[in-house]
Write a protein that binds this DNA or RNA. Structure first.
Lengths: 205, 205
DNA sequence: CAATACATACCAACTGGTCGGTATGTATGA
DNA sequence: TCATACATACCGACCAGTTGGTATGTATTG
């Protein structure tokens, strides 16, 4: 693929992503995307087999961006401290900065869109979304396991439980944020979760 | 409206609700609803001004059911104990039983659908969703304020923060539950939140 | 030249919505 | 009591516009 073709493909995915986040996938027509990009059917069907293929490539790209960002946060967090709990805190703080500054919607939002329009997508696409969320959870599981290996929690709890909770809290925050037109609900939820952690691991203070 | 007409309207709303939860609102055609009910265009447009009106009435009905259920949970919780913290716990436990046993999707899910397809709906409908979520939060705020009036939290925290967090946790749980095809992710999240409460209010034990 | 990258013209199916019609009420008044 | 008058509840054909998708063109570029 030439550089120009690559950028055309990206323009299509960008426009599609924006529209899907505003109107959902079924509510996004190919013509919408073409109108937004100034391209035509020929361009679209040159780059994608069809609308289902667009859905697949769109969520794949989101997942890739997402994973990269998380790995970068993790790297920065590990750089800041050797203590696993401080690393988790640093990681969450980096996420909070990102989420409250980001103009375009967070990747988590896109997964929710796919989830709530599930019958619109092929099974493999839904599986991909589910797997991506699991991968997201797994990153947290590893981080919390490191914490639990060093510190005793004030309550019996597993790394998986904590990981599921932060993912859940963030997804829920994104829903409320959108519903109310806020910009910082998700950040506040992440902060709340950190409060929970300070109560769970008081010895670390 | 006669009894027959009432039931016809309900059948239309039931079918529409089920379809919206599976395919989203834009992904749900009026013909879909009519096929599912065995009715015709005449019936639909007799009961609803149009698709936008259907959206309005659908979410209104969900909100009403929702509120009634929450009030009932609150009544039962107050019956079980005079202690505000025990009431919150009882309330959440009732919710956990409901959410893990419910076959049809929770009302919270419907709000998320509307939220993620926001451009599909009139402003007044979106406002209604936002207001309903706020009302939902307010119920929790009152409950947590009663707790804070009696007990000192281990960390400085407001009733609103706690209320927002439980709503967020539940909404997020519903997203993950759908994404993974679980039936008890939301319940687990509610349990996690109760763990947080026990750490926040240890004096109550 | 030949593959790539896009444009244009078109199609069948479906979309939300309208409209004339009908069947079944139910209230009224002589 | 029973015809008249009107409201309610629903049917199904039809419409203009939109949908995803195809077939065929042409310009560009290595």
């Amino acid at each position: 693929m030439t550089q120009k073709a690559e950028s055309t493909r990206d323009r299509l995915l960008d426009a599609a992503g924006a529209s899907v986040m505003a109107k959902g996938f079924a509510g996004t027509s190919i013509d919408d995307v073409l109108k937004a990009t100034g391209l035509t059917k020929g361009a679209f069907f040159h780059h994608f087999k069809g609308k289902a293929d667009l859905a697949r490539e769109l969520v794949k790209r989101y997942a890739m961006k997402d994973l990269k960002m998380f790995q970068e946060f993790q790297r920065q967090a590990q750089e800041q401290s050797d203590d696993p709990l401080e690393q988790v805190t640093a990681f969450l703080k980096l996420f909070e900065i990102y989420i409250s500054n980001s103009v375009d919607p967070a990747p988590g939002c896109m997964y929710a869109v796919y989830t709530y329009e599930s019958r619109q997508f092929d099974a493999d696409v839904l599986d991909f979304v589910s797997d991506t969320l699991r991968q997201w959870t797994s990153i947290y599981v590893r981080m919390f396991q490191d914490v639990l290996d060093r510190y005793d929690p004030a309550l019996p709890i597993t790394a998986r439980q904590l990981a599921e909770m932060i993912v859940s809290v963030i997804e829920g925050g994104l829903v409320l944020q959108r519903a109310h037109g806020d910009t910082d609900t998700t950040r506040r939820q992440s902060e709340q979760f950190r409060s929970y952690l300070t109560l769970l691991f008081p010895t670390a203070g």
